[in-house]
Design a protein around this nucleic acid. Sequence first.
DNA 1: TGTATATGTAACCTGTGAGTTACGCAAATT
DNA 2: AATTTGCGTAACTCACAGGTTACATATACA
Lengths: 108, 108
Amino acid sequence: MELQRLDVFQVIADPSRRHMLQLLSKDSLTINSLAENFDMSRPAVSKHIKVLYNAGFISIQDIGRERHCILKQDGFKQLQEWLAYYDNFWGSKLQKLEALLNERSNKQ
Amino acid sequence: MELQRLDVFQVIADPSRRHMLQLLSKDSLTINSLAENFDMSRPAVSKHIKVLYNAGFISIQDIGRERHCILKQDGFKQLQEWLAYYDNFWGSKLQKLEALLNERSNKQ
DNA sequence: TGTATATGTAACCTGTGAGTTACGCAAATT
DNA sequence: AATTTGCGTAACTCACAGGTTACATATACA
């Protein structure tokens, strides 16, 4: 795995990574303490962490030989911005319907 | 491609599918009119549409031999629910910080 | 100083998502 | 009735994400 520069959409597409984010929302954890929760090798977890870090979902604080992973908002923000566009779509669709209904009732 | 039952996270991980959603947010389109916007074969587009449909991102209205694709809210809702959990996380984190700051200023 | 611990990286294997072409079928058109 | 159009599906190829094991490195501890 050379590049590991997946975008935010690809990052959350993996169930293991979503599970990691969920665990980190409860408490910040080291790579090993994270790995205890998964049925995969520690290097595999390490790679996922790298992916999450590169996409801005976590920050990492090195304390001695330990790496503490902390949830970070940046990655989530990109997703929210994407969704906000469609929120607006549903909103305006509803508004058009309301406008149509108002127009109808005015004509009566 | 046998199963094509990807979850909402996998569905939006593909750039082409996100582009399709964007196009459909402007206007509902048939498979062919959609395909004109992409540098891929029509069967490829047809498969993406099936994936989007199965995940609840679009509904389809058959008119004669044409299939009209219309944006649908269901898929987006699942993503919003997922994000809402973390919204709450950031919210509560901010509240804790505020509480801490208030406590400090009261002590002075 | 030697050993145990926490982690990263390289090399490799494998499953599968995403593309292709070829074909089939029903609806529209002539 | 014959042809064209719009679309779905089957069979195949290929790239690559996600897993593995083996090894390297730096910190903590005895």
